[in-house]
Design a protein around this nucleic acid. Structure first.
Lengths: 156, 156
DNA sequence: TTAACTTTGACTAATATTGACTATTATTAT
DNA sequence: ATAATAATAGTCAATATTAGTCAAAGTTAA
């Protein structure tokens, strides 16, 4: 955690700002210049230290007036279960198992009926039948994991 | 959504007016002068931020007394709106346009905040980056259409 | 020693800005 | 009326301004 390397120092710098406000917005090149490193190092720091698992949400925009914004989010209590589910899904999942998983999310009141149906629509065979079965199962896994990651935190 | 560049500022300016009236009519050169930019930048702002997908209709006239008019469109009922959106999505859609579309669904109260965020999670670049960009956009279109079709009968 | 972590930079992608050229409409002169 | 001119807005491609990706090379810790 100490500043043994540039990444740690940049991490500390950003977290210091985040200790006092809910979000920090930076210009990648400016931070890179400030810490004498290449711009892509900022991406590395964000990717390794400001993940959703740790309670950070990152958004960015390129082009003129571009920025990187890091936001603290409130993680919910269910995240252990979500982690377990993500583990279980692995690389691929078929529709039947996906249904069971969504059912469990519903039974545990992590999602409501409308949301459950939405997820089922997004991961149904009808929607995802774009190639072979295996690829479809991989896609389903990707989408479900993306959704589960978004269920980790509360939004304003 | 704040104004970090001229385009964002102009967008905000126009939307502020549109928040209070159904339409706004401008003289391109005047707005350009007001914001210290070239006139064609106004076209850029309109093209990227006031699309039909986002619920705006734009009309204009050249020559003396010319103008650009931006109007908020009123969609008939939800079913028509869903059909229209499916049409607009077509074979593929990028994340930006998808975001605008979900925003419109939310603004028109067809979906709630949680559902909107779920859809965004399911169709984000992070979730769908499994192959090349074109395929990703096709996938996004498939999923969105699947969800929209689901919303169609979920409501009845 | 080796596996994990960090640093770097070349290449890519997204978005914004600008201006030269074109198209359309209104007004004025003939 | 018609033609010339003025007053608009539109298009498009070049350039500028950001951030993202990825893999090679370097460093550190187990």
């Amino acid at each position: 955690m100490q500043g043994r390397n540039i990444s740690d120092i940049i991490e500390a710098y950003l977290k210091q700002i985040l200790a006092e406000s809910e979000r920090v917005e930076i210009k990648r090149s400016e931070i890179a210049a400030l810490f004498n490193c290449v711009p892509s190092q900022i991406n590395y720091v964000i990717k390794t230290r400001f993940t959703i698992q740790r309670g950070y949400l990152v958004q960015s925009k390129r082009g003129g007036g571009g920025y990187i914004r890091i936001e603290k989010v409130k993680l919910l209590d269910d995240r252990d279960m979500l982690d377990t589910m993500i583990q279980l899904i692995g690389e691929q999942i078929n529709q039947r198992d996906a249904l069971a998983l969504v059912q469990k999310l519903y039974d545990d009141r992590i999602i409501g009926r409308k949301e459950a149906n939405l997820i089922l629509a997004a991961t149904s065979h009808e929607t995802l039948a774009v190639a072979d079965r295996e690829f479809e199962a991989q896609l389903r896994a990707h989408i479900l994991i993306g959704i589960l990651n978004h269920l980790r935190y509360e939004r304003e």
